[in-house]
Design a protein around this nucleic acid. Structure first.
Length: 838
RNA sequence: GGGCGAGUGGCGGAAUUGGCAGACGCGCUGGCUUCAGGUGCCAGUGAGGGAAACCUCGUGGGGGUUCAAGUCCCCCCUCGCCCACCA
């Protein structure tokens, strides 16, 4: 590149055009060289932690990245000017399936691929002018990070927060391998071979996130997040209150089953127990075959086999054909409330993973039960009186209980009739508890976190299996000792076109010695879900080079919680839930400060970038490369364009949204603010005072807009102010103010102009404060309406009295033709408005 | 099916608390600058009527509250997102 030409070469008051390419490169280098945005843990200024969700390294930045990092960067710069020590780190979520798939295709190791992509993305992040403390860079595929991800797993294991059990996975019979959910197409076939994907049970590792269900729910109170995200989290946790009780298995005559088996059911509506006309087990329920009579065995076995062959996804999404989705076992359950024996079915609408995997079915008050009862000709008894005129099927609302009284199996009498929902519930639960049949029970929809992935490019699970040792649960699973961490996948592997993890076939990795007995052992070949990596990276940023611990507790104490977290709404559920769980668990086991309950104090979720309506993604091939804009119009025009198109939270359709307006604006700013430019005359006297007053008003307005994330209107304010200066003339104060306020959004051009004007660095200046006295105005516009329609606008003193305002309004030439005689009513809101009702 | 959100000119959007609808920008039209194109500068631009002053209509549709509604309430339509048989 040619040597930097100083941009203050002047001929006849005309300045050379702004040259973004040269100027931006120069400032970016300077911020890097001078460590302008590096911050130490002992910095005495008040701390502020700004974090954009660390990206998956997919190559050069796309518009979504640009938008994300523009928001983050302007906050970093704004808070810095306001006197904070701003922690602004950046890292990479560098494990994941795309790199592995690329490796399978190309045969090149995912590390090489990933490192290339990281370099590309880093370069484009720097080119948009986003500044970070790069010394703190964290990458989840690096050995130091792997080491502590594994260290944390081991701590969780010790505390019972990690465990192993069998769980279903997607299995492709053609490829003879496990598939990730992403590899299963919508029609349930393998994306590679086209075979129908099956469900198979494998031993898998879990985190016990359900231990934290209640805390994860309650502590949503502590954070300042968008209501939408809080609601999504709440629904995902899915707390429900009800009762759990057991019923004996009986035969048609009411005689107990020879095994004495009982079935536990969970219900949120114990008040409707008298309306139970049948009961259902999930097809996978452990008692399903045991209670089935010989007469029904063939049918039940066929049904179970069919349910097994269908993935849970398909079962849940199946519509219609409801009559084919159940099977009668031949057994009955005895309803404890009235002694009645009700038939016991299997049905795939009951999930083995929720509650007890068995339900009492009350078709009168549950629509699914209603549908099933109709299909199988089962009786329906209403136990809640629907309101008059109700013409629906199942009635789920409140109302007085009916048909709900009788002598129970315990010989006493229960009478719920006439009670409302809540009272009947409480009474029914009370009765169950009194007789030791059941209890009040809270259930959560939230499931434990399955973290095993049958993949290569992820953090290895640090476990070995020894056939001679007991291991953590008798299975011979033994955690790799801390001093042998990290467990790193080998480089000399061959990627198979089947997609199977090469770890399974790498003898050098697989064969090891048992840490306990020293004998032969094999390694776990599964790796961790990449959400594990992203569940603690924000903690590592506070102490990124620590070799003994994932982070120093004091460093986390100092910087956490993240004051402003920024990312896409697509992470509203899983990533945020997992990161919250990790933070709580790490605090509870003494790794993180005990008082740290929530990692992200404020959250901002930006909208998605769309192009022509479709969601923007590489697979759709509709990426707009920011590179071209950076080459021509520069980073500042692009940043302002991103900010100006609309509210940050809204989705953006990039088609038809240009940077023409903001590019022109930067040109106008350049000619206005350049010290040698005569494009705009200098204002003097009253005009100068008026302009300076407007500058104070701008400070107040824009500062407020920064606080409210109303960046699109802040850009509009800068444009309005610039237009005003073109009309009314400039002052030094007005231009300095404009540059200071604009600096976080357009960091390069403002830095260049500030340096040309003052020799200083705009990003090291203090944020301007307005003088309230300068906001005072001596005239305001008062609107005069007749019947709510504007008829006149009058310039009045801001402290005009009500009487004066009324008199002035009534005497207006514009108003009088619309009045005939005395008005009926006059509403005066001095000094803003008078409304006359004739 | 449930939950949440949105609907304003040709387009993106603005209108913190009920108080001037359409800020700002794009696009378009005209003028100036220019050999020309581009750039730049100035002006106009919701719809209908009118020579003009001005008048009428207008924030998805319908009703309501109010002196006053894009904003509040009720019903409906459309779109988007999330969860989707969780008992």
């Amino acid at each position: 590149m040619a040597e930097h030409t100083p941009s203050n070469v002047v001929e006849d008051g005309r300045v050379p055009d702004y040259d973004p390419k040269t100027v931006e490169a120069r400032w970016q280098q300077r911020w890097l060289d001078q460590g302008t945005y590096e911050v130490d843990n002992d910095d005495p200024r008040p701390k502020y932690y700004v974090l954009s969700m660390y990206p998956y390294p997919s190559g050069a930045a796309h518009m979504g990245h640009v938008r994300n990092y523009t928001f983050g960067d302007l906050i970093v710069r704004y808070k810095t000017m306001q006197g904070h020590a701003v922690l602004s780190p950046m890292g990479f979520d560098s494990f994941g399936l795309p790199a592995e798939n690329a490796a399978i295709k190309s045969g090149i190791h995912p590390r090489i691929h990933t490192d290339e992509k990281i370099a590309e993305l880093t370069s484009s992040i720097k080119r948009i002018g986003a500044v970070y403390d790069w010394r703190r860079r964290v990458m989840s595929h690096q050995p130091d990070y792997i080491k502590f991800t594994q260290w944390i797993f081991t701590r969780f294991l010790e505390r019972g927060l990690a465990y192993k059990r069998k769980a279903p996975v997607n299995w492709c019979p053609g490829c003879q391998t496990v598939l990730a959910n992403e590899q299963v197409l919508a029609d349930g076939t393998c994306e590679r071979s086209g075979d129908l994907v099956e469900t198979r049970d494998l031993e898998q590792w879990f985190f016990k996130i359900t231990d934290y269900a209640q805390q994860l729910l309650d502590d949503l109170e502590l954070v300042d997040w968008p209501e939408r995200v809080v609601t999504m989290q709440r629904n995902w946790i899915g707390r429900s209150e009800g009762a759990q009780f057991s019923m004996p298995v009986v035969d048609a005559a009411g005689e107990p089953h020879p095994s004495g088996a009982r079935v536990e059911v969970y219900t949120t509506r114990p008040d409707t127990a008298f309306g139970m006309t049948y009961a259902v087990l999930a097809p996978e329920h452990e008692l399903a075959l045991a209670v089935t009579t010989d007469e029904h065995r063939a049918e039940v076995e066929a049904f179970i086999a069919k349910a097994r062959a269908t993935s849970e996804m398909d079962r849940l999404s199946s519509e219609g054909a409801i009559d084919k989705r159940g099977a009668f076992t031949g057994a009955y359950l005895q309803n404890p409330f009235n002694g009645q024996a009700v038939p016991l079915y299997l049905a795939d609408y009951v999930l083995v993973t929720y509650g007890t995997g068995a339900i009492m079915a009350v078709p009168g008050e549950d629509q699914r039960d209603w549908d099933f009862a109709n299909a199988y000709d089962l009786p329906i008894v209403r136990t809640v009186q629907p309101p008059e005129g109700f013409d629906g099927e199942a009635y789920t609302g409140d109302g007085p209980a009916i048909n709900s009284a009788g002598t129970t199996v315990m010989g006493d009498v229960v009478d719920l009739d006439g009670m409302d929902k809540d009272e009947a519930k409480a009474t029914a639960i009370d009765w169950l508890v009194r007789h030791g049949l059941g209890e009040a029970k809270v259930n959560y929809r939230l499931r434990d976190w399955l973290l095993s992935r049958q993949r290569f490019w992820g953090c290895p699970i640090p476990i070995v299996y020894c056939s001679r040792c007991e291991g953590i649960d008798g299975s011979g699973a033994i955690p790799v000792p801390d001093d042998q961490l990290p467990v790193i996948a080998p480089d000399d592997v061959e990627f198979l076109p089947t997609g199977e993890s090469p770890l399974k076939h790498h003898e050098g990795f697989l064969r090891t010695t048992c840490p306990e007995c020293g004998g032969e052992a094999v390694r776990e070949t599964d790796t961790m879900d990449t959400f594990v990596d992203s569940s603690w990276y924000f903690l590592r940023f506070t102490d990124p080079t620590n070799e003994d611990l994932p982070f120093d507790k004091a460093a986390v104490e100092h910087w956490l919680p993240v004051d402003q977290y920024i990312g896409g709404v697509e992470h509203a559920i899983l990533h945020l839930m997992y990161a919250r769980f990790f933070t709580k668990a790490l605090a509870d086991i003494g790794v993180a400060p005990a008082g740290l309950r929530e990692p992200f104090q404020r959250l901002f979720t930006q909208g998605m970038i769309r192009l022509g309506g479709a969601k923007m993604s590489k697979s759709r091939g509709n990426l707009v490369a920011p590179e071209e804009i950076l080459d021509r119009e520069g980073a500042d025009a692009l940043r302002l364009g991103q900010l100006f198109v609309g509210p940050p939270a809204d989705d953006v359709d990039w088609e038809g949204v240009g940077i023409e307006g903001t590019h022109r604006f930067i040109g106008r700013l350049w000619r206005l603010a350049h010290p040698a430019s005569d494009a705009v005359p200098v204002a003097t006297g009253d005009a100068a005072t008026a302009v300076d007053k407007e500058a104070h008003r701008l400070i107040a307005r824009v500062t407020d807009e920064y606080e409210r994330w109303s960046y699109n209107t802040a850009v509009a304010a800068f444009m309005e102010f610039t237009n005003l200066l073109y009309k009314q003339g400039k002052t030094d104060f007005a231009i300095d103010t404009l540059l200071l306020l604009l600096a976080p959004m357009a960091p390069h051009v403002t830095a260049e102009l500030w340096e040309l004007r003052t020799g200083g660095h705009v990003h090291e200046q203090a944020w301007p404060v307005h003088d309230p006295a300068m906001l005072a105005v001596d005239q305001v516009t008062m609107v005069v309406q007749v019947n709510g329609k504007v008829r006149d606008r009058l310039e009045v003193s801001p402290d005009i009295s009500e009487d004066e305002a009324r008199a002035l309004a009534l005497s207006s030439e514009q108003v009088r033709p619309h009045l005939s005689g005395e008005p009926r009513k006059v509403i005066v809101r001095a000094p803003k408005l008078v409304n006359i009702v004739p």
